[in-house]
Each structure stands twice: as structure tokens, then as C-alpha cells.
């Protein structure tokens, strides 16, 4: 497994997720992550790089989106397509969205930070608080009095 990691043309980086799965990823993809880049600069590259804060299913998603993002460069249609995928994910599985966002933040991948942040922003935009709560499973824990106070404090935003 490690023998491929030293080839010069298409270097492979080996990473291990928090749940012990081992991934072999092209260097160009892995270097999208500033965290992995720093680890490699610190000369951890010949060993398996541990990612104690990312599970395998989420890391798989991260890699997929890194590749998609690389493919879509200068392609407006693909860019639009990728941006619109957030709505679906947030509606069907906000839990995975949160894990993905946290993983992307931890791995420090700028392009995916922008993308996943845009997903949630697009999702929240123009929706009523009631609908947002329902879709994202947010529990309204205000008393009616507290809710009234917040509405009053920024009435302009709720009219």
C-alpha cells in the first residue's frame, strides 16, 4: 500500500479516518486541505496521516466534492448544479450537512467552505422561521413572551 505513495508522477497520500478506514487519495486532491498540506510540510507524508475528527462516510463526501469542485472550474453550468445540490441535502439530511461542514472546516478546505456555507445561506434565504425550524429540526424553546420580545426588538426584520 505505501509503495505507491512515493511515485513522482501521481503521488498518492494515505489517510486514516477516525473510525479506522484507510483512504488513498491523489496528492493534488489531498492538498486542497490546508490541514493535510501543513501535516505534509511537517514531513508526515511517508506515514499514514490520521484524521481523528473525520469519519469515513464524511471523508468520502469531502473527497467527492473536492473532485467535483476541481472539475467545475470555469464551467458555469456545473457550478450552478453543484450550488443547487445543497438544498436537497439540507432538506433530506441536515445531520450529514452539519458533519460535512465541520469536517470541511477542520480540514481547512477553502473552496468547500465557501460552497457549503453558500448551501446553507441559499437554504435559509427567504424561508419563514417556522419552515426553517421544521426542516432543520430546530426546537423552538422560547416562551411566547420571549418570542414577542425578540419580534419587538427587531420588528423591521419580521414585518
Amino acid at each position: 500500500m505505501a509503495s505507491t505513495s512515493n511515485s513522482t508522477s501521481s503521488k498518492i497520500i494515505t489517510l486514516r479516518s477516525s473510525d479506522g478506514e484507510v483512504f488513498e487519495v491523489e496528492e493534488s486532491v489531498a492538498l486542497e486541505s490546508n490541514l493535510i498540506r501543513r501535516m505534509m510540510e511537517d514531513d508526515c507524508a511517508n506515514n499514514i496521516i490520521p484524521l481523528p475528527n473525520v469519519t469515513a462516510p464524511i471523508f468520502y463526501l469531502v473527497i467527492e466534492h473536492c473532485k467535483k469542485h476541481a472539475e467545475m472550474k470555469d464551467n458555469k453550468e456545473k457550478k450552478k448544479e453543484l450550488r443547487s445540490q445543497g438544498e436537497e441535502l439540507l432538506k433530506s439530511d441536515p445531520h450529514t450537512y452539519s458533519n460535512l461542514m465541520e469536517a470541511v472546516n477542520y480540514l481547512d478546505i477553502k473552496s468547500l467552505m465557501d460552497l457549503t456555507a453558500q448551501w446553507l445561506a441559499d437554504f435559509l434565504k427567504g424561508k419563514s422561521p417556522r419552515l426553517i425550524r421544521e426542516l432543520l429540526k430546530i426546537k423552538n424553546d422560547f416562551t411566547p413572551e420571549e418570542e414577542a420580545e425578540i419580534l419587538e426588538r427587531n420588528r423591521w426584520a419580521f414585518d
Binding site: 478506514e21 488513498e24 469515513a56 441536515p94 432543520l136 429540526k137 430546530i138
Partner: peptide, 18 residues
């Protein structure tokens, strides 16, 4: 992936992590 794992399973959908 050394151990193939296709589906991306999430925890119970009632949890708000966002």
C-alpha cells in the same frame, strides 16, 4: 477505500446539529 462503504449513514434525523 480500503474497506468499501457506500452509503453515507447519518445519525437519527431528529437531531439538530446545525
Amino acid at each position: 477505500m480500503k474497506k468499501k462503504k457506500q452509503a453515507c449513514q447519518s445519525a437519527p434525523g431528529s437531531v439538530d446539529l446545525i
